[in-house]
């Protein structure tokens, strides 16, 4: 399976996917940590894919989305953005709305 197909299958078979440095339990970079924190606050389950485990994935994801940095967040197969955009959307409530519209379970309705 090519890297592109692997990424494609991951983002399409999981509601929320975060390509990150480190793992949900141990984010290894401030930006990945911020995204992990936001999803923890919202009580949203997500699949964390550690790009530090594979340079192929680390490079492949940047080509897949034409986005140069990590983390990268997908909701229902759609690229939502990196740390800045996800944080901005969280603060404005747009992220919560997007998740609900896409039918992703949001446990804790955390206020910004």
């Amino acid at each position: 399976m090519s890297i592109h197909d692997f990424i494609d299958s991951q983002v399409k078979s999981n509601d929320v996917v975060v390509f990150m440095k480190g793992t949900p339990q141990f984010p290894m970079c401030g930006f990945s940590g911020q995204v992990a924190h936001i999803f923890n606050l919202l009580g949203v389950d997500y699949k964390g894919i550690n790009v530090l485990d594979s340079d192929e994935i680390r490079q492949g994801i940047k080509e897949y989305t034409n986005w140069p940095t990590i983390p990268q967040v997908f909701v229902k197969g759609e690229f939502v953005g990196g740390c800045d955009i996800v944080r901005e959307m969280y603060q404005s409530g747009e992220l919560q709305t997007l998740l609900e519209e896409k039918g992703v379970v949001v446990m804790g309705r955390a206020t910004a």
């Binding site: 034409n66 986005w67 690229f79 939502v80 953005g81 990196g82 800045d84 955009i85 901005e88 959307m89």
Partner: peptide, 8 residues
């Protein structure tokens, strides 16, 4: 344009 497009 979407935020993603703007940033790109």
């Amino acid at each position: 344009k979407s935020r993603v497009q703007q940033h790109q």
